[in-house]
Structure formats: C-alpha cells, structure tokens
C-alpha cells in the first residue's frame, strides 16, 4: 500500500528502538486503551513546530540514535538532549529547521544512549489511526507504520505528503533544562495520607537512582523503600506521572503507555512540566522529589505554557 504513497524518508538504522508518536489518545481509556504520546512532550512539540507542522502531527521517537535517507525535498528537525546531527557527514545543529534534499543521508545521535530523540519532517504524515492515535503502541500491538504496533525497522519508508516550513530555531530558554539537578515536583495525591510520615519524609529527601528497567510504560527507580498501610486496594485510574509503590517499596513512575487501571498505592504524580527531565535521565542517573501543591504546580505549568504561547504568537 505504501508503494503508492509519497515517501518522506527511509529508515537506515532505527537505533535501539524507534517508534511513531503523536499526541496520543484522550478516548478509549475507559476501555483499557493506553494514552500513548511522546515521553518528552516538550522536545516532541518543538520538533513539529520547527517543521511548520500542526501540533500533534506524528514524529519519530527514537532512543539514543537514528539514521535515515531523505526521499523528498523537505524540512526536518531533530530535538532532544545533547543531540548531534550530520547530513552527508557534515555536522548540523539540532533544535533548528534543516532543509534536506532527496538522497541526503542523515544521522542523529545523543550523548546519552537512552535519550529520547525526536525527528519531525514537514508535511502531512499518511498513517492510519487506532482509537484516535497513529502512535506505535507496542504493548497493545496497535498503531504505527504497520498498524500492529511494531517498532520501525531498517528499510521502513515513512509516507509523508511534503509541506513547507520556514527556517526557525528554538531558543535555549524554551528548551528543557535537561542538566538541571533540581528535584522533580510531585503533586501529593491518591493514597498520600496512607504512607507512613517517615516514609513520606524519606521519599521527599532521599536520592533515587534510575534503574535499567525503564520503558514507555513506566520508570522503575531504586532507593530507600517507601511503605504505606494500604492493604487490599481496589484498582483505580492512573494518571500520567503517578508514582506507585509495590510491596517492595521501590517507586515506579507511570508514563505514556501505562496501564489505565492499577492497584498499587500511589503517593502522588510527577508534575507534567518535570516529566521531560525525568524521562531523559540516564540509567543510574539520580533524581530527587519535591512536594508541590496542585495549585502551585498548576501556576508553574501555566507560566511555562504562557511563555511558550507568547513566544509563538510574537514570532
């Protein structure tokens, strides 16, 4: 079927794992379908903006690196932490619009082997949606290029009806501060009051290490155990960033491909604006958590959002 579609680029090397992401779903969650969407929403958003695309247009999310051959005259953009880009062997900047020609060989690589790197191309991506999203849902076996949730492979052709894009760049102050050591804001909630006071204090003061058990469903951390008096809990809806504790007391932070319902006690949720910094942590990276009231988190989020909106409207 893809033979007849215009091809934007062909994957040469997908790196550790490359998938298609868009804004994810806001329906079907009550029937157990995962939300999906980009792990690093900020990097994903800007990759599309740099290509003149509509918000929510599909893009590639890859881990660490990707290599591809361009098949059309178009604009591309690559975003993520510490990404270096080459076109036909020559270094090019990330977080900027890059004009490419058919036949160009492009590579993108982050200093961090587990970084989430985003690749957008100007135009309309010609993909089918499942439950309102074209994103690859590996866990459910739905969506993506083949419609069955398979990650991208060498030789895969990405069908795109090419559109125009002006040359732009994202100023530093609008990019996430990936190297910041600031604690991640956590909005207390769910079973917060059922965690022992000492355990809560420990959670909000100790260092937690990112384990190698990290994926789009959730990130497992390792540190001082945190326990609660919750027993026989009924499964309930899990929001993005929820921090749950199985009986071993080690936190799991629930992310984009999380299950919709779960029955482990949760102390709260990582604030959405701090998710990019969390998901871009390397294995063995250290994070800390800061208790932040819902209203304060919302104020911070609105400030960041309006900073973005003001920049976009004045541009």
């Amino acid at each position: 079927m893809t033979d007849k579609l215009p091809i934007g680029f062909v994957i040469e090397d997908p790196g550790l794992c490359a998938i298609i992401v868009d804004n994810g779903r806001d329906s079907g969650l009550d029937r157990g379908f995962s939300e999906g969407g980009p792990l690093d929403e900020t990097a994903y958003f800007w990759s599309n903006w740099l290509c003149g695309n509509a918000e929510g247009e599909p893009a590639i999310e890859c881990i660490g690196s990707i290599a591809f051959t361009v098949k059309a005259r178009a604009a591309i953009a690559v975003t993520g932490p510490d990404v270096t880009l080459t076109r036909n062997g020559n270094a090019c900047p990330s977080w900027q619009t890059l004009n490419v020609e058919p036949g160009d060989k492009v590579t993108a690589k982050s200093l961090s082997p587990t970084a989430k790197v985003y690749l957008a191309m100007s135009g309309k991506w010609l993909l089918n949606e499942v439950m309102g999203s074209a994103g690859t849902m590996m866990r459910e076996g739905t969506g993506g290029l083949d419609g069955k949730g398979k990650p991208l492979d060498s030789g895969d052709c990405i069908p795109i009806r090419i559109g125009d894009a002006d040359k732009k760049e994202v100023p530093n102050w609008l990019q996430p501060d990936y190297h910041s050591n600031e604690p991640l804001d956590v909005v207390p909630g769910y079973q917060f009051e059922h965690f022992y006071p000492l355990a809560r204090r420990r959670f909000f003061s100790a260092d937690y290490t990112v384990t190698s058990d990290i994926n789009r469903m959730g990130y497992r951390l390792n540190g001082p155990a945190v326990t609660s008096d919750v027993q026989n809990m009924r499964s309930e809806g899990i929001n993005m960033g929820a921090i749950q504790f199985p009986q071993d007391g080690q936190p799991i932070i629930m992310l984009r491909d999380r299950q919709t319902l779960g029955g482990y006690p949760k102390i709260g949720c990582v604030a959405p604006y701090d998710i990019p910094r969390l998901v871009q942590q390397q294995v063995d990276g250290v994070v800390q958590f800061n208790e932040c009231a819902a209203s304060d988190a919302r104020t911070k989020w609105l400030l960041a959002k309006s900073k973005r909106v003001r920049y976009l409207t004045e541009k």
Binding site: D26, L29, D30, R234, G237, I238, A294, R298, L302, K305
Partner: peptide, 20 residues
C-alpha cells in the same frame, strides 16, 4: 478523560481552562 473503576472515578481536566 474519565476513567471509571470499582468504586472510583478519575476525572482528568484541562488545566488551561479550569482547576481542581
């Protein structure tokens, strides 16, 4: 979104429009 379960209903809202 609304996510119903056994005895609970999770209501997710657009923070741009309203607060908790």
């Amino acid at each position: 979104t609304l996510i119903p379960s056994y005895d609970s209903l999770l209501v997710c809202f657009d923070c741009f429009k309203v607060d908790a």
